[in-house]
């Protein structure tokens, strides 16, 4: 078997707050292969976003290693494109097309002419060709997220890092965005690491799901998913099982503390 594209080994992450040092994750290990849709799933406080930022290179490990194609990650770079939850991730002074071409040229991936062509291609892919020359503030939230995804994919990174990109959208838009992402994946087969706190979203989007429990974030289990919500041998649905693993045990633990 090939070595994994992304190899996270015994990763402990800490960051400083006013209240002191917080341990976000403790000895987390997982491996992402090429063309995986790998989902990090857990309640708030499980360190999933911090984990994604560490893979992005914004945070250095306190312990353990993150290897991308065998080399440790030291700083942010265009081989790992982030798609954030916030709508303000687009540069407001650039049009939709310029937002994509800026990423390509500023990172030195392409020259201006080729960048323009590739930008048009990916903007068409997310269905925004008609809005290519609009400024971000004239777009809806869903359209802004589509631009961010087009920008991420146009860079053709090794891995696309998505940090709850649909969390701030309304339910209908979220659903169609999820369908679109799956369609794009069928076409391009990119690798994506996707953070969410929604169990249905994880099952729908993920080929593999890593469950994290909070305070500090630890790996609880890993599941495979085919997009449906299959029943296990004991008749328990995958979603029910994930819910039990994430929450009932935590409740027992809390009860134990009292």
């Amino acid at each position: 078997m090939n070595p994994p594209l992304l190899d996270v080994r015994g990763l402990t992450l800490r960051y400083e707050t006013d209240a002191g040092l917080v341990t976000a994750t403790s000895r987390v290990s997982f491996q992402v292969n090429r063309s995986d849709r790998y989902v990090l799933l857990g309640p708030s406080g499980c360190g999933k976003s911090t984990l994604l930022k560490a893979v992005g290179g914004y945070l250095a490990p306190a312990e353990g290693q993150i290897l991308l194609k065998g080399a440790p990650i030291r700083k942010p770079g265009p081989d790992r494109m982030m798609v954030f939850q916030e709508f303000d991730q687009l540069l407001p002074w650039c049009t939709v097309t310029q937002n994509v071409t800026f990423a390509l040229t500023a990172s030195g991936r392409l020259k201006a002419a080729e960048a323009e062509e590739r930008a048009r291609h990916y903007i068409a892919k997310v269905g925004l060709a008609r809005f290519a020359d609009r400024f971000p503030h004239t777009l809806s939230g869903g359209m802004k997220q589509r631009v961010a995804i087009a920008r991420g994919m146009a860079m053709e990174p090794d891995i696309l890092l998505m940090d709850e990109p649909y969390a701030a959208l309304d339910a209908l838009t979220r659903r169609s965005m999820q369908d679109e992402l799956l369609q794009l994946w069928e076409e391009i087969r990119f690798t994506v690491l996707f953070v969410t706190h929604s169990i249905p979203e994880a099952i729908k989007l993920g080929t593999r799901i890593l469950l994290l429990t909070p305070h500090p974030g630890r790996v609880k289990a890993e599941h495979r998913s085919d997009g449906t919500d299959p029943a296990g041998p004991d008749g328990e649905l995958l979603s029910e099982r994930i819910h039990r693993e994430l929450f009932s045990d935590a409740r027992e633990e809390e009860a134990g503390h009292v």
């Binding site: 992005g56 914004y58 700083k75 942010p76 770079g77 265009p78 790992r80 494109m81 982030m82 954030f84 916030e86 303000d88 991730q89 540069l91 407001p92 002074w93 800026f102 990423a103 500023a106 990172s107 030195g108």
Partner: peptide
């Protein structure tokens, strides 16, 4: 978020200031 976007493109130091922070 915008700062992180800029660094994601590999921009640092003066290039980050001129191309992201000043327009922002």
């Amino acid at each position: 978020t915008l700062r992180m976007v800029g660094r994601n493109y590999g921009l640092t130091g003066l290039r980050l200031v001129l191309r992201i922070l000043v327009p922002a």
